[in-house]
Design a protein around this nucleic acid. Structure first.
Lengths: 340, 340
DNA sequence: ACGAATAGTGCATAGCTATGCACGACGAAC
DNA sequence: GTTCGTCGTGCATAGCTATGCACTATTCGT
């Protein structure tokens, strides 16, 4: 559109001013290259005068590496994902990469964003989308870019996954709630498209079944506080309501607790036990003290970064790795109840 | 280091396979360019076969525009900033830009990150750092990249700012608390390096002074829940404690409320009124219902995006714009008290 | 003092796309 | 049938850095 004025000085400009060749300038900025002190100082002086910053763009063309890593994320309203994003960013920056942030709230918007990423020649993609179908994953593989799927167990030649042990954790929670005297069980799950939520629900159900309990009332919500609140109101409208409620994430659990206490006048944990998943900071807040599972975000991110590092040095595809990080039960007040 | 195998097909590769010139390939991907249907289909067929994606990198070199906008952020633990980041990302993506995310937790780490951004030839920088000194801002200006400082009122030739009216809002809050019968006032401020916190404290103090009240006890914390909790415990250790407490952000206010209620056995709002700033989602949660100010993040982001858009079409510096967005008082339960 | 090794420099080119320009083909207008 | 405009195509080059290669100057060993 508008003719862009030349904005940055080039190495040629610097070379001209310093009275040396362009190669000399380039070598001045390459650590360990052969440049005499005299040349170096002439170059640096000219560079300072022209405010020269070497551009990385031509280097990308030459080396086919951009040192850009894309993070695709949706749902930053959930502090767990905000924290994960922060850790990824810090970790990647420390490793000398830059982070390209992409917001996608659906598989559809993801499909639209990926070609852009390919055009920017990103070295790798991290997907921290709750919703990522195997079909989308196969679509991703066509771009021949290493992908790490965070918390969604899709895998193929180019896609690896780092997940937490949702099933095992939820099963353990069923045990705990039974031990604490739970009799009638309820569950608020996430959107149906979410594999993590599915696994948590399935694990909870299995845990109950192993102790001979088949009865479980469920409601579906959207992973948010308000959704959890409304789902709890629906679930507890019936006369014989649950006395032990598992929510597929902490935000919904907090919403459910407020619904129970403030709208329905029930006591937590005396009348109803509640547990969540993630261990976001507010789960520990004095007003709630929510029992939950610590998804070890730090460790999961580290595992993902390790995979990316491998992918960076490898030449071909390096996918199909699946790492499972265990979740740790954090029991707080919302399940602390004397067995009846 | 390792010789990177050629990974992507180039337009030349496609041209060879399709039996046309490289220009023809380029034009096929440029909307509105003159290409015959026949050529176009030959190109597209070859491109599909080779999985060709046009690279944006050479275009950056030619046009001096990368369509990359960097967002520098710290403290994503605060949901307000997480939400701001999300809005910026969506807004910039919609405008055809890509977001380069940079985490910086101090002015120092910012200084280290900026040269990298210059090397990637970002078109603009958004700083959503709570701590950005005028000195850092001048440092930034040396790079001749348009900068928008979010919520920190620094400005110079290259740096514009979008802030919310902290002073006016805090002054209005002093009025409200007086009207509600506050007698002894306390304030928990953020880190001393934070301009936003300084302004809020100053505004509160002014508001009180205008009604003849000079007495104000203060404590300093770190903008986090735990910090607010501990500051409240310190502030309320004295026998004659405040009965109206203003916290420089919501997270600290929530921590303070839990300290008052659960550790000190005080009632909120009956014994102590509490107000915060930001209107993060948890401020509205049933357990708190915190009176606060809505920093209109959406509008602030829109204003910032408008400035960036101007900067994108301008040739020279376009800084020194300062936008002030008013904050809206949201009165909830924590200040709802009958005047004594 | 002479050959050899080393340090330092510049030349030329790769890497990929966009685009101005020249050129050929074709239909339309006169 | 000549003269245009239009359309489509290919050629050549800009944009900036990194690096292999050739070349000169310097140092060292014997």
């Amino acid at each position: 559109m508008t003719e862009r004025a030349k904005k940055y000085a080039s190495s040629t400009d610097v070379a001209r001013l310093a009275g040396v060749s362009q190669s000399a300038v380039s070598r001045t900025y390459k650590p360990g290259a052969k440049v005499s002190e005299e040349t170096r100082s002439k170059v640096l002086k000219a560079a300072a005068e022209l405010d020269y910053r070497p551009s990385l763009i031509p280097r990308i063309m030459l080396t086919h590496r951009s040192n850009l890593v894309a993070i695709v994320i949706g749902g930053m309203y959930n502090p767990f994902y905000a924290a994960v994003l922060e850790r990824f960013t810090v970790g990647l920056q420390d490793a000398g990469n830059q982070v390209l942030l992409v917001h996608a709230d659906s598989g559809h918007s993801l499909d639209a964003a990926i070609p852009k990423l390919a055009s920017y020649r990103v070295d790798a993609i991290v997907s921290a989308l709750a919703i990522l179908s195997p079909r989308s994953a196969d679509e991703l593989a066509r771009f021949k870019i290493p992908v790490v799927s965070f918390n969604t167990p899709v895998r193929n030649e180019w896609v690896s996954s780092v997940c937490c042990d949702n099933v095992g954790a939820a099963r353990a929670l069923a045990d705990l709630m039974l031990t604490r005297g739970g009799r009638r069980f309820g569950c608020i799950s996430g959107p149906t498209a979410s594999p993590a939520s599915d696994e948590r629900l399935a694990g909870f159900r299995t845990g109950l079944a192993m102790r001979g309990i088949e009865d479980l009332v469920t409601a579906t919500a959207d992973f948010r506080y308000e959704g959890g609140r409304e789902a709890a109101l629906r679930l507890f409208a019936a006369p014989r309501h649950p006395d032990a409620l598992f929510c597929a994430n902490d935000l919904m659990a907090l919403g459910a607790i407020d619904a129970l206490r403030r709208d329905l006048g029930l006591r937590v944990p005396e009348d109803v036990m509640v547990a969540g998943f993630d261990d976001i900071p507010s789960a520990a807040w004095g007003a709630y003290e929510l029992t939950t599972f610590l998804q070890d975000g730090r460790r999961m991110v580290d595992e993902a970064l390790a995979i990316l590092k491998t992918a960076a040095t490898a030449h071909g595809p390096v996918g199909d790795v699946a790492v499972d990080v265990p979740a740790r039960l954090i029991e707080r007040r919302t399940t602390q109840r004397e067995p009846a």
